[in-house]
Amino acid sequence: MIKKTLYFGNPAYLSLCNAQIVIKLPAVEKSPNVADIIRQESVVTKPIEDLGVVVLDHQQITITQGLLEALLENNVAIVTCNSRSMPVGLMLPLCGNTTQNERFRHQLEASVPLRKQLWQQTIRTKINNQATVLRQSTTAETRCMQIWAADVRSGDPDNLEGRAAAFYWKRLFADKHPGFTRSREGEPPNNLLNYGYAILRAIVARALVCSGLLPTWGIHHHNRYNAYCLADDIMEPYRPYVDKLIVDIINSAEDYTSLTRELKARLLGIPTLDVQINGQRSPLMVAVATTTASLYKCFAGELRKIVYPELS
């Protein structure tokens, strides 16, 4: 079952009651002029078991310890945002699987050749998905990207990922943004990419924990300051789905120079994006769970290939 994403962009009191998240509005709670019946009707509840991601995007949100505990026990990813509404924090449960110790050992003992092969599969799928986005969104010729994808060797020692990325970003937004450069601090639509990737990262990190894996221990990324190296690895083939959504936003002529509530709502729909995986159509959040489950089987020696989605 696909889990829901809850976004809070206004002051709110968030608490727990009967396995439900209870949402109260401070403006209503504190007002002496509001009738009790209206105050009661303003309270909203949601079953915690239905949630996958909770985004906290306001400085005046109060959340109880009891609710935090319940959310983490149900493998809900909690994303916190800064004053510019950009995600800056991610809270995940420490234990997300009943056989976690065994799964950790399989992951940590994975050989270097296996990790390099898994990275090869990851980059091949990413480049092929990027090529599909270019074909669908631009008039660019993508045969070179297909050749690069086929030529990726174990561990990608030739850095074909970087070559494909340079080709891809130069052309993806060329019509509306000639000379576009992908940068976290760059001009729009970098703001949309940053926000979309942060949501995607939370989805992937949550799925890894649910599969009993360490999101810190990557197959390729290994920055000592990065707590989510494996999430950054596994999200690579999913990034083009976010890119395609942002192309659609740009083509809709909507103002995206700042992250409006409407834009955030569209980007928070990333978990429900339709993807093709294992020959079937599936919401992105469910597909990510399939990918992370297959990754564990690769570590355990039960599979030789990660199951990734393919853009078509």
Rank of each mutant, 00 (worst) to 15 (best):
K3D: 05
K4M: 03
P11R: 10
S15G: 07
S15I: 05
P26Q: 13
N33M: 02
V34N: 03
A35D: 11
I37V: 07
I37E: 10
I38D: 03
I38H: 02
E41I: 00
E41Q: 07
S42K: 04
T45S: 11
E49V: 01
L56E: 09
D57P: 04
H58S: 12
Q59W: 06
Q60V: 01
I61D: 07
I63R: 09
I63V: 15
T64L: 08
Q65W: 05
L67I: 06
E69H: 13
E73L: 07
V76E: 05
I78H: 13
V79P: 09
S83Q: 14
S85F: 07
P87K: 12
C95Q: 15
N97D: 15
L108D: 08
E109I: 01
S111D: 08
P113H: 05
R115L: 08
Q120K: 11
R124E: 03
I127K: 01
I127E: 01
Q130S: 00
A131G: 07
V133T: 06
L134A: 01
T142H: 07
M145L: 15
D151W: 03
V152I: 15
R153N: 11
D156H: 14
L160G: 00
E161A: 10
G162A: 14
R163G: 02
A164C: 06
A165L: 05
A166R: 13
K170Q: 14
F173W: 13
K176I: 03
H177C: 07
F180G: 05
F180D: 06
T181S: 03
R182G: 10
R182C: 14
S183C: 08
P188G: 14
P189I: 09
N191L: 15
N191P: 14
A202G: 04
I203T: 08
I203N: 10
C210E: 06
T216N: 13
N223R: 13
R224Y: 06
D232L: 09
I234W: 03
R239Y: 09
P240A: 06
D248S: 12
N251K: 08
S252M: 06
E254Q: 11
Y256A: 00
Y256V: 00
R261K: 13
E262Q: 14
R266L: 04
P271A: 05
P271N: 03
D274N: 15
I277G: 01
N278E: 14
Q280S: 08
S282E: 02
P283C: 06
M285A: 11
V288I: 07
V288N: 02
Y296N: 09
Y296I: 09
I306H: 05
V307Q: 09
V307P: 02
P309W: 01
P309E: 02
S312P: 07
